[in-house]
């Protein structure tokens, strides 16, 4: 391993990226435009329904035919235009947190020995839910007040947008570019020098990591200046998640690039990876409440683990230790992708 050669690859690749003005500006402009656009779109009352969580003894299963199987427990549950959803008793704490953040308008515990409801008195929707509950017949429930800062959609979606930008930048910036280098003969030219495959790949990884992390940090910082995102956790922890997530996505790009000979095939393969990842990794919407098969599939995506860990730090104030399982999965994925990618790496199209 020769550090001078790795440094040369990092420098040359970084120059190429920085001087490619169109690609560089796209990396910055796209996420900023999306954050601002989404903040604008969801600044009004984006949710047509009120949302109320219900904890019940031996809760019946929600089905497509009957999404509100608890309706007999309390007359309030028959109110129209409210989305009543069942909360398992062991998720009560998480649900209370959601009430505090205005993500859920009210939480009701209808187990016979409990009979409480939680409401955030600073939430306009919570206020209306409480009025409706009090005016309904049926057993009286005791009030529990929850305090908390409202989580806007933009707070929830910012890791998703940055993650999506990272995903595209890593997969195309490494996967597609290496296939292009192979096809146009640049890799063949490098193979005629003492540069080894490991040195070349390390150079690509480090160069792309530095650029993607720098772009993500800058975009987050700039948008945070006027969006003031919720940040319950530690910025350094978030940076660690960003670095590990970026590394995993880059190694995934290397895996695609290791042997593919044509840009067309790499384009197809990268689309095949990115579209399901974009839909199943919780970029735009939470996977909570989706089909269990989809939820399982989403666990195969490195982006899911990156976003879950990032949101846990930002929104729940989780520490690195608390998100360690996700980081370990990312590291394991990276090792597998890198091992296969490096072992199968080909310089030429022969």
């Amino acid at each position: 391993m020769n550090l001078r050669r790795i440094g040369a690859v990092i420098y040359a690749r970084s120059l190429e990226f920085i001087r490619d003005r169109s690609a560089l500006s796209w990396s910055f402009v796209m996420p900023i435009v999306m954050v601002v656009g989404l903040a604008f779109i969801f600044s009004g009352d984006g949710q047509p329904l009120f949302k109320v969580g219900v904890i019940a003894d031996q809760p019946p299963t929600e089905t497509k035919a009957d999404p509100n199987p608890n309706r007999n427990l309390h007359p309030f549950l028959n109110t129209k235009h409210i989305d009543f959803y069942t909360v398992p008793a062991n998720e009560q704490a998480a649900a209370i947190k959601k009430v505090g953040r205005h993500q859920v308008d009210m939480l009701m515990d209808l187990r016979p020995e409990q009979m409480h409801y939680w409401v955030n008195t600073e939430s306009p929707k919570g206020y209306f839910m409480e009025l409706l509950l009090k005016s309904s017949d049926g057993s009286k429930l005791s009030q529990e007040i929850v305090k908390g800062e409202q989580i806007r959609y933009v707070d929830w979606v910012i890791p998703g947008i940055l993650g999506m930008n990272m995903m595209f930048s890593c997969l195309w910036g490494v996967g597609y570019v290496i296939v292009r280098y192979r096809k146009n003969g640049y890799l063949k030219r490098l193979n005629a020098t003492p540069l080894t495959a490991t040195e070349f790949l390390l150079g690509q990884i480090v160069s792309r990591m530095v650029l993607v992390v720098a772009v993500s940090v800058l975009v987050f910082t700039i948008t945070n200046l006027f969006m003031h995102f919720v940040m319950e956790g530690n910025y350094l922890d978030l940076l660690v998640v960003l670095i590990i997530g970026t590394f995993t996505l880059i190694t995934m790009g290397l895996l695609v690039a290791s042997r593919v000979r044509s840009e067309e095939l790499s384009d197809g393969l990268l689309n095949l990876l990115t579209w399901p990842m974009m839909l199943l990794s919780g970029v735009w919407f939470s996977m909570e409440g989706t089909n269990p098969i989809m939820q399982t599939l989403s666990q195969l995506s490195p982006l899911t683990h990156t976003l879950t860990a990032a949101r846990a730090i930002m929104l729940d104030g989780a520490s690195l230790l608390q998100v360690a399982p996700h980081l370990l999965i990312l590291v394991a994925m990276s090792v597998v992708f890198l091992a296969i990618g490096a072992f199968g790496f080909r310089w030429t199209t022969d």
Binding site: R5, G7, Y11, R13, E16, R19, G185, K188, R189
Partner: peptide, 24 residues
Amino acid sequence: FQSTALQDFLTVRENLKFFSNLYP
């Protein structure tokens, strides 16, 4: 080689420097 592509956006001097750095 008969045909060789190089990295985009690099000048002649930068290409020379890059390849020089690959050799002892």
